[in-house]
């Protein structure tokens, strides 16, 4: 068991997916970097938001 933190595992997963998708979807470096950063932010932000949304059901 490398990562005891699920958050860290999720962030790393999002980083890898964002890198691959940015290289697949964009040919230029600048737009690829922007696309990758947006994808990463959406995935991590979305997961945290969804996590808090699920937390509401435990109250």
């Amino acid at each position: 068991m490398i990562f005891r933190s699920h958050l860290l595992s999720m962030i790393l997963y999002a980083a890898f997916v964002a890198i691959v998708l940015s290289f697949l979807r964009r040919d230029e470096k600048k737009s690829g970097l922007k696309y990758g950063l947006v994808m990463f932010a959406v995935m991590v932000g979305g997961a945290i938001l969804f996590g808090w949304l699920m937390y509401l059901f435990t109250l």
Partner: peptide, 14 residues
């Protein structure tokens, strides 16, 4: 048995 089993499976499937 590992707590990270689901994460590992998701990594491989992803």
């Amino acid at each position: 048995k590992l707590a990270t089993f689901e994460f590992g499976t998701a990594y491989i499937a992803g």
